[in-house]
């Protein structure tokens, strides 16, 4: 289903979705955050991409697994806590971030389906926003199988056409949202479709950064485990973990007990995002650490994304959003690292 929605009508559409919890980009001075909103007027679709991707909603930074408590009869009780299935809509999802969810989908599926992830995932509708202008100078989606108007993982794709949006429904979930406000939408004219095509073609040209030889990277990496490159490239790393926390595809987590009373014991078991760039991520209680230095941890980040994930799921675990490049305090640049990898292979 293809429709036209004027920008003036956009807030009215959002109002019609009152049964859903709405998340959207909201501007806070220079930065844009993905937030739950009450007032459609606070949505800012002209924002650049949000600091965190919708990963933060589907796979939140802190998730309660269970609660435990000692009863009056001194019996320990454990209660499973599952997230409520709140029907939710996320506006302004960039194609790279939607693709990223299709990758975390793979990790949280398989023999052990993750009920926390899937409860949130299944109750969420993703409304994408094509990137007419790359939201970051470090965008490189074209190198990793994406594009600024890719539909992968989305339920609706909106393309900005000046004073209106071209709205394309890509799933039943998407059509439901449009049907809730049918009178607001018009049929697109031939000129609208042409305009979309033109905008999209131009958008691709505006993406300047690219990985040199991406197709060869996975096989080159197979022989680079012991390369001195990792030492060199990781020298300045501060182990802050920003690169992986902000990554829309990174999924590593920790599980810990948070205790509100030690005796009688009462508390919660929670999972929180964890980070392969932290030294204690892999450190045993004995002090032995299979990844003892920055070098082995940068290698893990790169190899996981461009070799191991490819071996497991036939896809890169990177969608080219550019966050890790833009936000690394010391300028470690994944594209530059990968280009050096290609140089090793040639």
């Amino acid at each position: 289903m293809e429709k036209i929605l004027t920008k003036k009508s956009f807030p009215q559409w959002v109002k019609k979705l009152s049964l859903y919890k709405i998340y959207a980009p909201v501007r806070d001075n220079d930065i844009c955050n993905l937030e739950a909103i009450d007032n459609p007027e606070s949505i800012d679709l002209d924002c650049s991409n949000t600091v965190l991707s919708p990963k933060k909603i589907i796979f939140p930074q802190r998730e309660i697994y269970l609660e435990f408590e000692t009863s009056d009869e001194n019996k320990l009780q454990v209660k499973e806590i599952l997230p409520e299935e709140t029907p939710s809509v996320i506006f302004g999802v960039r194609p790279c971030d939607a693709k990223a969810l299709t990758l975390t989908d793979k990790v949280f599926s398989g023999d052990f389906k993750d009920p926390y992830y899937w409860k949130r995932r299944n109750s969420t509708t993703l409304i994408g926003l094509a990137c007419n202008i790359p939201p970051s100078p470090n965008c490189f989606c074209l190198s990793v199988g994406g594009s600024p108007h890719s539909k992968e993982g989305l339920d609706i794709l909106m393309t900005d056409l000046g004073d209106k949006y071209f709205v394309e429904s890509l799933s039943e979930k998407g059509s439901t949202l449009i049907n809730l406000a049918k009178p607001l939408f018009q049929q697109p004219k031939a000129a609208d479709k042409k305009a979309v095509e033109k905008t999209q073609a131009e958008a691709e040209k505006k993406i300047v950064r690219q990985i040199k030889d991406i197709k060869k990277i996975p096989s080159i990496l197979e022989n680079m485990f012991d390369s001195p490159l990792w030492d060199k490239e990781s020298l300045s790393c501060l182990r802050c973990g920003i690169c992986t926390y902000l990554c829309p595809t990174c999924h590593c987590f920790d599980i810990n007990d948070e205790v509100s009373s030690s005796s009688p014991v009462k508390g919660k078991r929670v999972r929180t995002w964890d980070n392969c760039q932290f030294p204690d991520f892999t450190m045993h209680s004995s002090g032995h650490n299979p990844r003892p230095d920055r070098s082995s941890r940068l290698r893990q980040r790169i190899l996981h994304k461009f070799q191991y994930f490819v071996e497991l799921y036939k896809d890169y675990q990177c969608t080219g959003c550019g966050r890790c490049i833009s936000k690394c305090p010391v300028g470690i640049d994944i594209i530059e690292v990968l280009d050096k990898v290609s140089d090793y292979g040639s």
């Binding site: 949280f108 023999d111 052990f112 993750d114 999924h251 999972r271």
Partner: peptide, 13 residues
């Protein structure tokens, strides 16, 4: 023996 948290191939460590 590697450090473990989830036991089911999700936590990534």
């Amino acid at each position: 023996e590697n450090k473990m948290k989830c036991g089911i191939g999700k936590c990534g460590r």
